[in-house]
């Protein structure tokens, strides 16, 4: 690109006085997407609308900011969820009490289960915002490269970054299954809303090995997703120093490992009989 030449030019103006001025000569290709593709005449000079002040609400950067903020909310939820899960190691009473307490948060200021529903709505909004932005950006990315490379490009950057979309789909399918399994009990054969501890033990029963396998796969997918996602969110929100990048990437890795270990410890404990 950069076919602009800049230099000094002499000319004589109308009243005959020679002048020397600094001029820029734009010899670049005709502007405009359509003009480029058809190689036809460019838009007349000045045809570009003044960009400042136009709505930028649907810009790719705004969509990324929405993804970053909603993603951070969801990571916060995952940590709270993991902390709750780990109560299973304290004992049945503690775990069941915790599950029951979730329904009572905010009482007596709020009627029972209200606080829980407020949190659920917040999570649902975050999930929808995250997925819708991701879908819009994915469509734009596909459109931005209509012809694929014959020689598939080698991954030069991060593998975790290249698996964000499929990883996200796996996690989304898992969330649906997980709600049907552990919240509504629709697909859980021995579900009893009053006995959360027993529900967890029976959910990871050896005969339901495929459920455990899906659980492990989804947790690993979340780990990969967050390994890149946490760093990417911080970068999207303006992290810009090289040192900060190393710190952000390290924190992303550490948080992902903690989450994966914390969530996998429960089925591990059930399968090995540490918790029964």
């Amino acid at each position: 690109m950069a076919i602009e030449s800049i230099g000094f030019m002499h000319w004589t103006n109308s009243d005959g006085v020679p002048t020397v001025k600094f001029v820029a000569v734009d010899t670049s290709a005709p502007a405009g997407k359509a003009a480029r593709q058809k190689a036809g005449p460019g838009r007349p000079a000045g045809a570009r609308k003044p960009a400042v002040g136009r709505s930028s609400a649907r810009s790719t950067v705004v969509l990324k900011i929405i993804m970053a903020v909603s993603g951070i909310v969801l990571v916060g939820f995952l940590f709270a969820h993991m902390a709750g899960n780990l109560k299973i190691f304290v004992g049945q009473e503690s775990f069941d009490h915790y599950a029951h307490w979730l329904r009572e948060i905010g009482e007596p200021a709020l009627p029972p289960v209200w606080a829980l529903w407020i949190m659920r709505v917040g999570l649902l909004v975050s999930v929808i915002a995250h997925i819708v932005s991701a879908a819009v950006l994915t469509v734009r990315a596909r459109k931005a490269r209509p012809v694929r490379y014959a020689h598939r490009p080698k991954v030069q950057g991060s593998y975790a970054a290249r698996t964000m979309r499929w990883g996200g789909v796996i996690v989304f399918l898992f969330i649906i299954w997980h709600l049907l399994d552990m919240t509504t009990g629709t697909v859980h054969p021995e579900f009893d809303p009053a006995k959360p501890y027993a529900n967890v033990i029976s959910a990871f029963a050896p005969e339901r090995w495929y459920v455990t396998a899906f659980y492990v796969l989804a947790i690993l997918a979340i780990g990969f997703h967050l390994r890149h996602g946490i760093f990417s969110a911080v970068r999207t929100l303006g992290q810009q120093s090289a040192r900060g990048e190393r710190i952000a990437k390290t924190i992303a890795l550490v948080l992902s490992v903690i989450l994966v270990a914390g969530f996998l410890s429960v089925p591990f404990a059930v399968l090995t009989g540490l918790v029964s």
Partner: peptide, 28 residues
């Protein structure tokens, strides 16, 4: 018609001038 950035870092590894990825954070 360019796509959005996912901070994957493919760009900076092929950049013949080694433009660092963190400039994208600065833009953000």
């Amino acid at each position: 018609g360019f796509g959005g950035c996912t901070n994957a870092g493919e760009c900076t590894t092929v950049c013949p001038k080694g433009i660092p990825l963190n400039l994208i954070g600065r833009l953000n």
